[in-house]
Design a protein around this nucleic acid. Sequence first.
RNA 1: CGGGAUGUGGCCUAGUCCGGUUAUGGCGUCUGGCUUGGGACCAGAAGAUCGGGGGUUCGAAUCCCUCCAUCCCGACCA
Length: 570
Amino acid sequence: MKLSKYLLKTIKEIPKDAELKSHKLLLRGGYIKQVSAGIFSYFPLGWRSLKKIENIIRQEMDGIEYLEINMPVVIPGSLWSETGRYEAVGDELLRFDDRVGRKMVLGMTHEEVVTDLIRYAVKSYKQLPVKVYQIQTKFRDEPRVRGGLVRVREFVMKDAYSFHDSYEDLNAAYDDAYKAYHRIFKRCGLPAIAVSSDVGMMGGSGADEFMAVTEAGEDTLILCNSCSYKANKEVAYAKREYLKETPRAMEEVATPGKMSIEDVSAFLNIPQTKTIKALVYSNGDELVMCVIRGDLEINETKLKNYLKSKAIFLATDEQLKGAGIVKGFASPVNQKMRIIADTSAAESSNLVTGANKVDFHVINCNYGIDWNTSDVVDISSVSEGEMCPECGGKLTVTRGIEIGNIFKLGTKYSGAMKAKYLDKDGKEKDMIMGCYGIGVGRLMASVLEVTASDDKIVWPISIAPFQVSLLGLYKDNNIELKEKCDAIYENMKSQGIEVLYDERSASPGFKFKDADLIGSPITVAIGEKSIEKGGAEVTVGTNETQIISLDKLISEINTIIKRLFDELNY
RNA sequence: CGGGAUGUGGCCUAGUCCGGUUAUGGCGUCUGGCUUGGGACCAGAAGAUCGGGGGUUCGAAUCCCUCCAUCCCGACCA
């Protein structure tokens, strides 16, 4: 491709709305343009890269025997009502009426549509398993978009679905997907880690998320330094040791003005591990008191899941007052409301907690003696340095962008939608399902977050818009050199090298800067200076520039291209 | 949905607090010239309902009200 004929709009200034590196670079390099919050157009450069990622995904999905299909973006609401999600899902599901007033939705995920498809086509165990996928635009009316392509409303997603007649078969497919995902991310030049995760609104029995590790990420990950334990903070747990002592008699002590755990522990000169924190949550209908050791934090995802609530909030001051709770001095002792106790609070002895009375706490408070509940469960968050639940090693906290996930759905959708098959004995059974997603644009942005510097992109060769940027640094009157460059360009093209040839009448500096943003893994610069040095200047990524003579140039470039692909496990 | 910030040619911005000629400069674009190794230079040109609406005032980019958009933090997030 000749650059003078290409639609390229690069900008020098950093757009003020961009904060993340990937966002700045994608805007500056002319890959994307924002149309509305979380809605983007792709320029040819961005779309080429996206298409390459899609094709890698296609190859790997085809490789584990998934069949590509396509499902609609506009879906009748009635289909979503079959599973109850039309009503259950919040405003991120965009609902509207068509011309005759039918309720419609924009597809944000396709469990209903694919289940409808498969229940129509598949009736017998002999036809199972069935595995399908699509790569298609989704729309989710996200309440909060952020970070350019990291969190958007409209996006290209690969979503795959599998249908089985046994959990063993589902597990095997899940395993296949897990491995294929690692191959996909590796081939895209993005090291990704898989972490156990919450199932969220998808439901089902198990889920892993694939994460690009970067500070720009929205998710918090808990990783073990010594073993393979990896989990999203939402579901992570730690091994803890609790101090068991002979219970002493509970006693009231004055703690004037000391409301926080820090203040109380400092005032009484005891560690925070000897205190209890009692927080009151509302799930809309009822109030529950959550009791946890003072040094720990409540994990609201765990709590929400335990309560089977959609949303929970800390109780307001009015709610506390109404329930007779004295803020800052709340206590599980003599508490009438339902108590959810974290294991840490139930397993430790002789703790300090509020006296439910202004300016007083109690010491030597013991679970089972001074207070009780049937709900003792892990509702705690894990923090840096805690012990790994599997090996006792040290846990670290890091951030990640979720670029893919895989779910064991079970029969949640097939059951609701009567997607049944006849088994060997002629009995009707619900199909067992799995689903597997990858956010394509988000993957592209993540590659930059992880690999790019602030003002220079170097794409992995597999997903670079162009493999080679050829810069013709000739003066306008140097016809001879221009013809040499033209010939090299034609030669590269004829050999199937994806080359973007900068033959514009512009200064070398201008061309170098654009090349930095176009980010081809290989840059070839030819000018009077390079010719004097013996040929073309070839720069591979961030490596040092080397001079290669013009007669060997093409074969060398081919070798480099092959090497770069090899490094990505092709 | 809560908190914060910002809106001035395609992009980045000055001016806004403290109202007063024809709204600042740069980038980009177009024309001509001169240039070609890290976003050159000279000359000229086009391009702005100062986010929208309402109000105060002799006079509003500037003050007030209101709506909208965008970004950041939180809530939320298959």
